[in-house]
Simulated scan of single mutants.
Amino acid sequence: MSAVAWIAVGSLIAWVWLLLGQGFYWRTDQRLPRHAEPPRWPSVTVVVPARDEAAMLPVSLPSLLAQDYPGEAEIILVDDCSRDGTGQVARDLSVRHGGLPLTVVSPGEPEPGWTGKLWAVRHGIALARQRKPEFLLLTDADIAHEPDSLRDLVAAAGTGGPDSFDLVSQMARLRVASGWERLVVPAFVYFFGQLYPFRRVNRAGARTAAAAGGCVLLRTEAAERARIPESIRQAVIDDVSLARAVQRSGGRIWLGLAERVDSVRPYPRLGDLWQMVSRSAYAQLRHSPLLLAGTVPGLALVYLGPPVTLVAGLLTGDPVAAWAGGAAWALMTATYLPMLTYYRQSLWLAPLLPFTAVLYLLMTVDSAVQHYRGRGAAWKGRTYSRPEATPDV
């Protein structure tokens, strides 16, 4: 066989394995577990870290204030040194909409060794513990919840039996409105699921751990046992680090796709999406040049190999390359269809996944370049030059 044919066959083998051997990551059926409502609804404190979120809060915060929850619940919004009046906007919205009681606190700039979000979460949890809630809901300032979201999350966590969870997290449905969002956003969740197959995360005794930081319900005792957030204070990918800490401390976790929790943050331009991905992409590789060196050709083989070898096989009359490349591309396309369906997008976007994968590959390389330039993970005016990917617990 020709070299092109060998590449095509290698790509096909990779896609057969991804289809059948990677926890069926491409399926989108991991939705919130349904348990019976508890006889007594536990108390919950909602912690919202917010930095320069004055534009997002009028869309997201009223949905939290309006939660239809039968037990005791309150909201703590941690204003993380915002420069746009975030705290005052939150107070005004609370007065205007009523609903759950809201407390706004401002902890000041983070101490050395802390990322900004986790510093804010630390102060929110510390204040929450004074009220001794049984659950903490950690949710971002750009996440909108349907009125029964908190009720469903608590019911899904269970009452402490063998089917109960210490951490329940939903991957919020991200906004998909602009052309770039349609091309990039569903693939972001698809790639995340490929790295952390939800079915494996949710299996009892699982070794795979992950969470979606926009919506995490956490038992307070599990947070204390795992020393959250102190044990992950330097984490850039804080949601995955949080899930690992809970799992390592003996907790059981669950992760799935949301049906009634949405991100309202817009990413209308490619540059906006690029910044979102590149700020943590190299941290995902643990800032390892060796992992980066293996990732680049690996992604090229898996995602670029199929269309390139199909075209090359057709042009050169190489039937093995054309057949294997075409079959691999077909499998790739088929695995992407469920995610596009979940996002209510045209299925004709599925064959474009190789192009989107190239964008993500370039974002990852750019993330590494920025890291070695000393810029690290930059977000909202803060730069973490040498952050830890996942500190030891």
Results as ranks from 00 to 15, higher is better:
residue 301 L to N: 14
residue 146 E to Q: 11
residue 271 G to S: 14
residue 355 F to A: 14
residue 370 Q to I: 00
residue 206 A to V: 09
residue 194 Q to R: 14
residue 282 Y to G: 01
residue 232 I to T: 06
residue 124 G to D: 12
residue 271 G to Q: 11
residue 187 A to T: 06
residue 352 L to G: 11
residue 35 H to C: 00
residue 229 P to S: 03
residue 376 G to L: 02
residue 53 E to Q: 12
residue 111 E to A: 14
residue 212 A to R: 06
residue 261 V to R: 03
residue 172 A to S: 13
residue 341 T to A: 15
residue 367 S to M: 06
residue 269 R to Q: 14
residue 141 A to G: 09
residue 381 G to V: 02
residue 243 A to Y: 08
residue 384 Y to S: 01
residue 51 R to F: 01
residue 152 D to F: 02
residue 269 R to A: 15
residue 371 H to A: 07
residue 326 G to M: 04
residue 96 R to P: 00
residue 382 R to T: 10
residue 1 M to W: 13
residue 366 D to N: 12
residue 147 P to M: 12
residue 48 V to A: 08
residue 303 Y to M: 15
residue 381 G to P: 07
residue 173 R to L: 12
residue 2 S to A: 10
residue 31 R to D: 07
residue 379 W to K: 06
residue 100 L to V: 04
residue 276 M to P: 00
residue 336 Y to I: 00
residue 259 E to M: 01
residue 240 V to G: 04
residue 45 T to N: 11
residue 110 P to I: 08
residue 121 V to A: 03
residue 262 D to S: 06
residue 77 L to C: 09
residue 260 R to D: 08
residue 112 P to E: 14
residue 170 Q to N: 05
residue 249 S to R: 09
residue 39 P to R: 07
residue 142 D to L: 06
residue 246 V to S: 07
residue 297 P to L: 13
residue 313 G to V: 12
residue 329 W to R: 05
residue 259 E to F: 03
residue 15 W to M: 03
residue 146 E to T: 07
